[in-house]
């Protein structure tokens, strides 16, 4: 039983971690926490099922098409819900604008796709039992994403520019960096990462329109616990959350596991508002 808790816990945790990274990627260039992060995960599953099962594309082609669609959704988010409210960041209008967009995405999916969970294709036809692909594909996806991001941030000038904007937006602008284009690029990247989360986890979560809010919350928990913008915190937090949740599922039942997650979330945040790995106190006066 321990093995199956670990297998499913790490798999689910990797999905949460990826959603958390999508949150962080958008946050780093815009200081906006977007409610569309979870919907991107949902769309990854839906597009995957649409392209591969319904339209019959080969998995690899479906995967690329899914990435492109989710990146586009990311860019739309930036244009529709983020850019117009950036000037009034302190009023938190972005909470409302991104929530509105997220709900519109969800409703369109419910009507145009289905309100019932739809099957998701097997990708590699590999493994069974604990080693089934549905358990390790999310983990591999998460691992590749982390490596990819590390390479991007450390080895490329664009990646360094992302980091520069994340650290000090004003100084980056003063230096003449194309802040607006980089922000759009980061939203496209976040879209692709969110989509990847849903695609990789498609066999676990299925292609279901209501996955959005769930992923929104469970993807946000590791970000909140790990500290905003901290990808390492998001991965550790996501995996811990996944394992904890699956353990509680097996031991005390699903309902109480979500109650427990919720309580821990609130208690930790009240004790450490900046997250367990973060430390940033803004001057107010």
């Amino acid at each position: 039983m321990l093995a199956s808790i670990l297998a499913s816990g790490v798999a689910v945790g990797a999905i949460y971690a990826l959603i958390g990274i999508a949150y962080n990627t958008m946050f780093s260039t815009s200081r906006v926490m977007s409610f569309t992060a979870g919907q991107l995960g949902m769309l990854g599953g839906v597009f995957g099922s649409l392209f591969v099962l319904r339209l019959g594309l080969p998995p690899i082609a479906g995967f690329v098409a899914m990435l492109a669609c989710c990146a586009l959704i990311g860019v739309i988010t930036e244009f529709v819900a983020v850019r117009p409210v950036l000037k009034s960041l302190d009023q938190h209008l972005y909470v409302l604008s991104t929530l509105a967009l997220a709900l519109m995405i969800q409703q369109v999916t419910a009507i145009k796709w289905s309100t019932e969970p739809q099957p998701f294709p097997r990708l590699f036809e590999l493994g069974s039992g604990m080693l089934d692909e549905k358990f390790w594909v999310p983990v591999i996806a998460c691992l590749l994403t982390i490596i990819g991001l590390e390479l991007l941030y450390r080895k490329t000038l664009v990646g360094r520019a992302f980091l520069a904007i994340a650290e000090d937006n004003f100084a980056a602008r003063a230096l003449g960096l194309p802040e607006r284009n980089l922000r759009i690029a980061s939203y496209a990247l976040a879209g692709a990462i969110g989509g990847l989360a849903g695609f990789a986890g498609g066999q676990l979560l299925l292609a279901f329109f209501a996955n959005g809010p769930l992923l929104n919350f469970y993807g946000f928990v590791p970000v909140a616990l790990g500290g905003l913008g901290n990808n390492r915190g998001a991965v550790i937090g996501g995996l811990a959350l996944g394992v904890f949740q699956q353990a509680a599922n097996f031991l005390v039942g699903g309902i109480f596991s979500s109650v427990a997650v919720f309580c821990i979330f609130i208690i930790v945040l009240l004790l450490a508002p900046q997250g367990l790995f973060g430390s940033h106190v803004a001057r107010r006066v």
Partner: peptide, 15 residues
């Protein structure tokens, strides 16, 4: 940019 090296800081200026 405190998280990046001196050379990278200059590289950013040369974007």
């Amino acid at each position: 940019f405190t998280q990046q090296t001196v050379a990278d800081n200059l590289l950013l200026a040369a974007y």
